[in-house]
Design a protein around this nucleic acid. Sequence first.
DNA 1: CCTACCGATCGGTAGG
DNA 2: CCTACCGATCGGTAGG
Lengths: 211, 211
Amino acid sequence: MAGGKRQSDIVDVAESLFGARGYHATSMREMARELDLQAGSLYTHIGGKAELLAAIVERAAAAFDAAIAPIRASGDPAPKRLRAAIRAHLTVIARSRSAAAVYFDEWRHLNEPFASEIRKRRDDYEAAWRELIAEGVQAGELQAVDPALAARLCLSACNWSYQWLDPAGPLSPEAVADAFADMLLAGLSTSNSRNREPDHPVPSPTRGDRR
Amino acid sequence: MAGGKRQSDIVDVAESLFGARGYHATSMREMARELDLQAGSLYTHIGGKAELLAAIVERAAAAFDAAIAPIRASGDPAPKRLRAAIRAHLTVIARSRSAAAVYFDEWRHLNEPFASEIRKRRDDYEAAWRELIAEGVQAGELQAVDPALAARLCLSACNWSYQWLDPAGPLSPEAVADAFADMLLAGLSTSNSRNREPDHPVPSPTRGDRR
DNA sequence: CCTACCGATCGGTAGG
DNA sequence: CCTACCGATCGGTAGG
């Protein structure tokens, strides 16, 4: 699926409808109506419904990969990279909640070989987070947690945000990201007491400004 | 929908198929085949497909509510209650990942009034977590986080586990829950050192958070 | 619980 | 890009 203005319009509408109602609950006729077309006319521009799903999911996967690539390569300390990754991940979701919804919920309806390809891509993405955390543990910047579980904790918390994160809401995605990073890095409990000096060099715009 | 052995068999099969493939991707004929019935015969026992979905989602919502009710009433310190709630929540998910998948992913296909009822029930459930955290903040047992965001962080991390939590995996759901609780309570970073007492008392939240 | 069937709707195509 | 239409499948019902 390569180019064409009309085609990318169709992909956009599909993304929005698949995200809102789900892949199987969205008909080609609904999509056509949204574009003021007849159902059959869609097929001038696209190969089929399954192909649309694949295009949307690939695009979403690419957005996540691209968002964390520079962070991985930055050479910053692990806590700073982790904070940046959380922000990047949430920003991708906030930029298109529909795309995130399709990526997270509808990818299981992909045909082969797309399903396998995406599965691998997600595994690689998670591995990058795991590696980041493992490096931090190694360097003594992060506690001696299991990197696999810690990566899963961070990603789970971030992924689910597609359910509620609202760029037009009272808290910007960046503010949510910083708050999440604060809590994940510093912990919720007071009983393992921490000093109150700024502990990471990264400025956190929302600290002291949490609604 | 009230009782009948055959009926509960059907609900169980529906839960498993809806969870695996999604509501709209599952046909009544598939369900019938799984039960060695003809499609039409299902309707002796159930009212329809939509009714099945409602039954499954209600059952799941009730399981989550029941799991945290005794914890809310326990009077334990907030960190202990939070840990217990994480464990309870993950245990419900682990006990039936299909049910969790339907509850989290397919509830949007509910008709009214079920959709509204479930939305309210989920809001109330989240409010219980928020309240727990707010009490901990008030008592100085938890840091001065925004209870709404902290509740969301914990629930997000826990909810997403339906995607990967495997009771037959190397880590039991209880072990995962404890690891998640450890990380959420103590934080991932070493830089706010935990072996040091705070030089000032931990501040209470600036706005009176009573609820 | 089965056989037989309903109208509706699905994704997609032919031919222009 | 439209009209017209295809076969398949959907959830559900009638009648036994």
